[in-house]
Design a protein around this nucleic acid. Structure first.
Length: 877
RNA sequence: GCACGCUUAGCUCAGUUGGUUAGAGCACCUCGUUUACACCGAGGGGGUCCAAGGUUCGAGUCCUUGAGCGUGCACCA
C-alpha cells in the first residue's frame, strides 16, 4: 500500500464520511437491500422501532446506550440476511415540550401562553420542536445508528394523527374510552391532569396536627383542606368508638363555626394510626374519594385549580395553600381546637415528574381508558388488564431480564383506569365534539353548525402506545398491505408485529405496557416478541447524571474525544440487561485502545507484501490453530448474539482479537508469512466486529479489505463450517509461555537465546513448527535425543516436555526448590481429584462426560508430576 | 407494607440449564522501546465469590434466614 497509515486510528477522520456512505447506499432501507440483491425477498423479517426521543430534548448517555445496543442488534440481523427494518422517529412529549416552551417564553419575553391565542402558541411550540428535532436526529446519526431515515416518523405528524383518531374512535365506540367525573392528579403549576405513572413521590417532614373535632381527635397534615369536612370515619371494630353508630350525626364547633358531622364506619381506616379517627376531604384525596363513593357522601371543592382557597374557607378564601396553612393552625389554636403537633411526621408529597408542581388531587370530568371493563374476545370475557397479563404470561412476549416480568405483573395488579386527557394545548386534540346535549366522536369534525371540539389533548403515551403499528402504515395502508412485497405501503404485512423492543427499564410501564395494551386490543397480538431492557447509565461514582450534580457526560463530547466506536463498546461491554452501568473515562479509554488494537492489526496487514501470484501456502499447525479458534469464536459470538448476550459476545471477540490473533497469530505470521490465512481471519474478524464498532471496521474494510466493492455493512455474517479443525499448536503456545516464565523467574534477559533438548517422544510436535518455535521462544539450537542431559530446566505443556540447557547460568538449588513447590501444588490438586474420583456417589450420579473429564485431568497432572519428580531426581545426580 | 435487585481481586464488573485448580478490564509489581500498535509487548502478585444454615456426589450458581446498599410499587388521617 502506498498510503501511509497512521499509527493510531483517528475516529473523527472517518466517521462523518462513513456514515454518509452508508446513508447514501440506501442499505438502511430493507427495500433497497432487496432491490440490490443484498437481502432475499423472502428472508425472515427483523423489525424494531427506535424508542422515539423527546423532540426537544438532547441525546444523553441513556439514549447513546439504547442506540448502541439497538444498532448492534440491527446490524447483526442485516448482515445475517434478514429483512431488517429499524424505524426512527421522535416524540412530541406533550407536557415536557409545552412546559419547556412556556418556561422559555416567560424567561425571554415575560409572557405566558395565555398572552397568545391557542393557535399562535402552538405555532411557537411547533417551531421550537422542529428546530430541535434536527439536532436530536443529528445526534442519532453521530452514534452510527443504521435507521431507515426514509420512514422517519413523528408522534404528532399527519399519519400518526390519523392513527390516534382512528384508535380513539374505535375505543370510544367500544366503550373502552369513557368520559367521567373522578378524582385526578391535578398539577396547579402546569394546569393539567397527569396520569398515576407520571406522579413522583418525595418524602418530606411536615407537622401532623391533632385537632379536636367534637368528641373526636383527628390528625391531619393538611389543615387547609379541612373546612368542608363533615364526615368522621372510624374503623367498625374500633372499641374506642363503639358508642357512635354509623350515620350518627353530631353537632360540633369547627374552624369557621358550628357544623354537623356524620359518623362513618369503614374498614379502610387503620386504628393504629393517630387516634384511629379521621375526617375526609373527598374532593382532594383519592382515599377519601373512594370512601365517599362507597358511602354515597357529598363532596365539595376547597381549593381551586389555581391552588387558592375557595369561598368555603371564609376569611381564608383566595389565599394560596402555603400562606393559609399557618394562619388556619393559629386560628384553631386560639379556638382551643389544636390538641398537639407532631413535628416528626414523615410523609410523601406527590409531584408531577414532568417538571411540574405539587400534585393537588381534584375531582374533574376527564377522559379515561377503562382497564377493567369486560368485553368478549374469541369467546372469552377479557379486560385490558387481562390481555396485558396474558401477553407476558403466555410467553408471547419475553422480557429480558426475566425478573422484570414480576415487576410488570405487579404494576398491572395495581393499575387503575388511565386518565388520557390533558389540559395542555400541545398534543393530539381529543376527537370529540359537543353541541348541547349531543356528543360526536369521529376522525373528522362533524357536519353542521354549532359543534365545539373538546379543548383537551391526549396523554402523549396514547400516541406512543400505537407506535409499533402507527409507524408501519396503520390505518392508511394496513388493509391493503401484502406480505412479501417491498415498499412502505406493505410494511404492516411485512413487519408487524415487530421482533424486538429495546429501552431503559424506567419506561417499561409508560411505554411497553401501553403498546401491549393497544396492540392486544386492536389486533389480538403482542406488539413485539422480546423486550430488552437496559440499565441506567450512571457516572463513575454510581450517581444518576443530573444537571444539579453537574456530572452529565455528553455522548458527543466522548465521541469527539475518543470516537463513537469506543463509546458504544463502553456502553455494551461489561454490562448486563436491567443492571445500571457506570460510565468512566477509564472504561472509554480502554475501549478506544481496543479499537486502536484492531486498527493496528490492519496496519500490520497493510504493510505485508501481498503477492497475489504466489501459490497458496500449505497450512501449518499454527494456521490450523487460528482457524479453529476463529471457528469457535464465530459460532460462540453468533450464539451469544442470538440470545441477546451482547457483553459476552463482545468479550469473546476481544479475547480472540487480542489474546489469540494479535498476540499469537500475528507473531506467527512474521515467521510463516501465510498471507491467505492472515487475511481470511482478519476479514472475518471485521465482519464479526462490525455490529459492535461499525466505523473502524468499515474504515478498515475500505482501506484493507479491497477485494470487494460492497460496504462491510451489508457483507454476509460469517458462518462456522461444520468440519472440525484440530491443531496441537495450543500446546506449543503453553510451552512457549512456560519457557518465557522460566526465563523471567531466573531474570534472564528475554532476548537471550537458549539451547534445549527435546525428548524423541515430543520430536514431531516441535519439528512441525521448529522455525516458529525457535523464534517465539528465543531458542538457538534444539537437540532431539532419548538421553536427557544433566542439569537442565524442565519446561512442559501438557504432555510436551523440553529441557532447557542452563548449566552454569542458574543455581540448581533454586531450581530444585521451584520444582518442589510445583510438585506440592500439583499434589494438592491430585488429592482433590482423587477424592472426587473415589467417591462412589460421584461415579454413580455425575454425568459420564464429567467423570471422563475429571479422569483425564487426573492423568494429565499425574503425568506432569511424574515428569517433575523424574527431573528433580536428575538434578540431584 | 409488598416486591425486585446488588454484595465476586485495590477499583469497575462478567460469570443463563449446578460440574476445568473462579475470570476480564483498569490499577499494582518486575522487565522491555524486537520495523502493527507504548492507545504497546513479556512475566507476575492479588479473591474464606456478604454471613450462617440447608439441598446435592458436587454450590459463586439452587433453597432458607440474616446484614448492608439500592430500586420500583402501594399506603400515608
Amino acid at each position: 500500500m502506498e498510503k501511509e497509515i497512521p499509527k493510531t486510528y483517528t475516529a473523527s477522520d472517518w466517521e462523518e464520511q462513513l456514515y454518509a456512505k452508508w446513508e447514501e447506499s440506501g442499505f438502511f432501507n430493507p427495500d433497497t437491500c432487496i432491490e440490490k440483491g443484498v437481502t432475499e425477498k423472502d428472508a425472515p423479517p427483523f423489525s424494531i422501532v427506535l424508542p422515539p426521543p423527546n423532540v426537544t430534548g438532547t441525546l444523553h448517555t441513556g439514549s447513546a446506550c439504547m442506540l448502541a445496543i439497538e444498532d448492534l442488534i440491527v446490524r447483526y440481523h442485516r448482515m445475517k440476511g434478514d429483512r431488517t427494518l429499524w424505524i426512527p422517529g421522535t416524540d412530541h412529549s406533550a407536557i415536557a415540550t409545552q412546559a419547556k416552551v412556556e418556561r422559555l417564553l416567560l424567561e425571554e419575553e415575560g409572557k405566558t401562553r395565555h398572552d397568545f391565542s391557542r393557535e399562535a402558541f402552538l405555532e411557537r411550540v411547533q417551531k421550537f420542536a422542529a428546530d430541535n428535532q434536527e439536532r436530536i436526529l443529528y445526534q442519532v446519526r453521530k452514534l452510527g445508528a443504521s435507521v431507515d431515515w426514509s420512514r422517519l416518523a413523528f408522534t404528532l405528524d399527519e399519519k400518526r394523527a390519523l392513527a390516534v383518531r382512528t384508535a380513539f374512535k374505535k375505543m370510544y365506540e367500544d366503550g373502552i374510552i369513557y368520559r367521567g367525573e373522578r378524582i385526578v392528579n391535578w398539577d396547579p403549576k402546569l394546569q393539567t391532569t397527569v396520569s398515576d405513572d407520571e406522579v413522583d413521590h418525595r418524602e418530606e417532614h411536615s407537622p401532623l396536627y391533632y385537632l379536636q373535632y367534637g368528641p373526636f381527635v383527628i390528625s391531619t397534615a393538611r389543615p387547609e383542606t379541612k373546612f368542608g369536612d363533615k364526615y368522621v370515619v372510624v374503623h367498625p371494630a374500633d372499641e374506642r368508638y363503639q358508642a357512635y353508630t354509623d350515620g350518627q350525626q353530631i353537632k360540633l364547633e369547627w374552624i369557621n363555626g358550628p357544623v354537623t358531622a356524620t359518623v362513618i364506619k369503614d374498614e379502610v381506616i387503620d386504628p393504629t394510626f393517630g387516634t384511629g379517627a379521621m375526617t375526609i376531604t373527598p374532593w382532594h384525596d383519592a382515599t377519601d374519594f373512594d370512601i365517599a363513593t362507597r358511602h354515597h357522601l357529598d363532596w365539595e371543592p376547597i381549593i381551586s385549580e389555581a391552588g387558592l382557597l375557595l369561598p368555603v374557607a371564609g376569611e381564608f378564601a383566595g389565599m394560596p395553600i402555603s400562606e393559609a396553612r399557618e394562619k388556619i393552625v393559629r386560628k384553631l389554636e386560639t379556638k382551643g381546637l389544636l390538641v398537639k403537633t407532631d413535628d416528626t411526621y414523615l410523609h410523601n408529597i406527590a409531584i408531577n415528574s414532568r417538571g411540574g408542581g405539587i400534585i393537588e388531587p381534584q375531582i374533574k370530568k376527564q377522559w379515561w381508558i377503562s382497564v377493567n371493563k369486560e368485553f368478549e374476545r374469541e369467546g372469552k370475557i377479557v379486560t385490558l388488564k387481562s390481555l396485558m397479563q396474558q401477553a407476558v404470561h403466555s410467553k408471547e412476549i419475553t422480557i429480558i431480564p426475566e425478573r422484570f416480568e414480576k415487576t410488570y405483573f405487579h404494576w398491572i395488579d395495581n393499575l387503575r383506569d388511565w386518565c388520557i386527557s390533558r389540559q395542555i394545548w400541545y398534543g393530539h386534540r381529543i376527537p370529540v365534539w359537543y353541541r348541547g346535549e349531543e356528543t360526536y366522536c369521529g376522525i373528522e369534525a362533524p357536519a353542521g353548525d354549532g359543534w365545539e371540539q373538546d379543548p383537551d389533548t391526549l396523554d402523549t403515551w396514547f400516541s406512543s402506545g400505537l407506535w409499533t403499528f402507527s409507524t408501519l402504515g396503520w390505518p392508511a395502508h394496513s388493509q391493503a398491505s401484502v406480505a412479501g412485497r417491498p415498499g412502505p405501503e406493505n410494511d404492516f404485512a411485512n413487519y408487524h408485529p415487530t421482533t424486538l423492543i429495546e429501552s431503559g427499564y424506567d419506561i417499561l410501564f409508560f411505554w411497553m405496557a401501553r403498546m401491549i395494551l393497544m396492540t392486544e386490543y386492536f389486533f389480538g397480538k403482542a406488539p413485539f416478541k422480546t423486550i430488552y431492557l437496559h440499565g441506567l447509565v450512571r457516572d463513575e461514582d454510581g450517581r444518576k447524571m443530573s444537571k444539579s450534580l453537574d456530572n452529565i457526560i455528553d455522548p458527543l463530547d466522548v465521541i469527539a474525544k475518543h470516537g463513537t466506536d469506543a463509546l458504544r463498546l463502553a456502553l455494551v461491554l461489561g454490562s448486563t440487561p436491567g443492571n445500571d452501568l457506570r460510565l468512566s473515562d477509564e472504561k472509554i479509554t480502554a475501549m478506544r485502545n481496543l479499537v486502536n488494537k484492531l486498527w493496528n492489526i490492519g496496519r500490520y496487514i497493510s504493510q505485508q507484501e501481498t503477492d497475489s501470484g504466489e501459490q497458496e501456502k500449505t497450512k501449518s499447525d499454527a494456521d490450523y490453530w487460528i482457524l479453529s479458534r476463529l471457528q469457535n469464536t464465530t459460532s460462540e459470538v453468533t450464539r451469544l448474539l442470538e440470545n441477546y448476550q451482547l457483553s459476552l459476545a463482545a468479550e469473546t471477540l476481544r479475547d480472540f482479537t487480542w489474546n489469540q490473533f494479535a498476540d499469537w497469530y500475528v507473531e506467527v505470521h512474521k515467521v510463516e508469512k501465510n498471507d491467505t490465512v492472515l487475511h481470511h481471519v482478519f476479514i472475518t474478524l471485521l465482519k464479526l466486529w462490525h455490529p459492535f464498532m461499525p466505523f473502524v471496521t468499515e474504515a478498515l474494510w475500505e482501506t484493507f479489505g479491497h477485494q470487494t466493492k460492497n460496504l462491510l455493512m451489508v457483507e454476509r455474517w460469517p458462518t462456522d463450517q461444520d468440519s472440525k479443525i484440530h491443531s496441537s499448536f495450543q500446546i506449543v503456545i503453553g510451552l512457549i509461555q512456560d519457557i518465557r516464565s522460566i526465563k523471567a523467574f531466573y531474570r534472564i534477559d528475554p532476548v537471550t537465546k537458549l539451547n534445549l533438548t527435546v525428548h524423541k517422544n515430543s520430536q514431531k510436535m516441535i519439528q512441525n513448527c521448529a522455525v516458529l518455535f525457535k523464534h517465539l521462544a528465543r531458542i538457538e539450537n534444539i537437540h532431539f535425543s532419548e538421553e536427557i542431559p544433566l542439569h537442565t530446566v524442565l519446561a512442559q505443556s501438557e504432555t510436551l516436555q523440553v529441557f532447557i540447557e542452563l548449566d552454569g547460568v542458574i543455581d540448581f538449588a533454586t531450581e530444585k526448590k521451584r520444582l518442589e513447590k510445583e510438585i506440592t501444588t500439583k499434589e494438592k490438586y491430585i488429592a482433590s481429584l482423587e477424592t472426587k474420583l473415589s467417591n462412589q456417589n460421584f461415579l454413580e450420579r455425575a454425568k459420564p462426560d464429567i467423570i471422563a473429564a475429571e479422569k483425564e485431568k487426573l492423568s494429565d497432572v499425574q503425568e506432569q508430576i511424574k515428569n517433575f519428580t523424574k527431573h528433580l531426581a536428575s538434578l540431584s545426580s
